[in-house]
């Protein structure tokens, strides 16, 4: 049991937890925020697995751009769009 394993276990648990939250949450916006969080967890997973360039890309595209377009597309929908 070294630091790597502990980190790995932690990241894994978080990944699954955040993904479940993203999929199960009732509100669209919450779901998207959890997706963004999942993306951040993926960034840390990539960093952990010695893939710094992938991590950077994922940070920019995954948690940045994807979240942005998601939010942008539901932004002007008001309450109607927020129900499941």
């Amino acid at each position: 049991m070294n630091w790597f394993n502990i980190l790995e276990a932690g990241v894994s648990v978080l990944l699954v937890a955040v993904a479940l939250a993203a999929v199960l949450s009732k509100k669209l916006l919450v779901s998207i925020i959890f997706l963004s969080a999942l993306s951040m967890m993926a960034v840390s997973a990539f960093a952990l697995l010695s893939a710094p360039d992938v991590a950077v890309t994922e940070a920019v595209i995954g948690s940045g751009l994807v979240t942005f377009i998601f939010v942008a597309s539901i932004r002007n929908l008001g309450k109607a769009g927020e129900k499941l």
Binding site: L15, I32, L49, F70, G81
Partner: peptide, 22 residues
Amino acid sequence: NVIKILVGINVMEIGINIFIIA
């Protein structure tokens, strides 16, 4: 809900990406 379906697809994609790196 179509947005949530897209969220699901994104979760899958993140999963496969991490799997490839792993």
